[in-house]
Design a protein around this nucleic acid. Structure first.
Lengths: 130, 130
DNA sequence: AATTGACGCAACCCCAGAGTTGCACATCGC
DNA sequence: GCGATGTGCAACTCTGGGGTTGCGTCAATT
């Protein structure tokens, strides 16, 4: 087994590199917005490694549809695929997902900060007018 | 200012309650997948509170388009709107975003766990065959 | 009361993308 | 070599959703 996928920090998928964090996040969000793609990710995470044909067996769509979904997922950095003989094995990549999770958490805390400021100002104004 | 939005844990938006975590996450992901909606969230977070008409002024689409986006965002629990006189003021709600961020982080760490297991098993098998 | 500004509803256009089918090409097992 | 299996490519269909326009309604201002 060529373990090019198991530990390398370099993006083997070759789909995302020189882009800003915003566009990387965009790709992940768009990819995750589709229920079928989330299901495929689930299957893939459960099996560790699988081909498009295998995955198509566990989902009510054609193999070609699965291939397209995998292409989107790979472009988003969520999975990576490599050829082994005549088949293409895909595996899950946690890094992109983790990065997006952190982005969202940071955004949420930013909103919290802003809301706290707004509230404080409002109370201040009320105190002044009283 | 009625601060029904600032601290209450109860979902004032009235759009999500009896659903499982999966569908709540789905709504948030679908909502965030659109760049225009993310921009509207940004504007809303920056202004603290705004109406659809105001937001339409800072974005290259019609007011009606903004209204539709706000409806999606509200259904996802990302914003909440309330009538004040003849206008409807919207504000950002960090809770749903934070919950989704945690869901993603948990999923990423789950993938990591599975990958670690796979890798361990592979090394074990290799050691045995040697 | 008349006017103005903000909202809601409904009908409509348009295209990206999810899914399909058919076929050609490569690879494994015999 | 030959059949069987798995991929890749391309053309095609069709639904969903983002966007628009038009109009009716309601509240604030004067």
């Amino acid at each position: 087994m060529t373990d090019e996928r198991s530990a390398g920090p370099a993006v083997a998928g070759g789909a995302e590199e020189g882009r800003g964090a915003a566009e990387a996040v965009d790709g992940v969000l768009v990819a995750l917005a589709d229920p079928m793609r989330r299901r495929l990710l689930d299957l893939l995470a459960a099996r560790g490694e699988a081909t498009a044909t295998m995955l198509a067996g566990g989902v009510p769509v054609s193999r070609q549809a699965v291939v397209k979904h995998l292409a989107v997922l790979e472009a988003a950095g969520l999975v990576s695929g490599g050829r082994v003989g005549r088949e293409v094995r895909y595996a899950v990549r946690p890094a992109a997902l983790d990065a997006t999770a952190r982005w969202m958490a940071a955004l949420a805390s930013d909103w919290d900060r802003r809301l706290a400021t707004i509230k404080r100002l409002a109370e201040q104004a009320e105190r002044d007018s009283r």
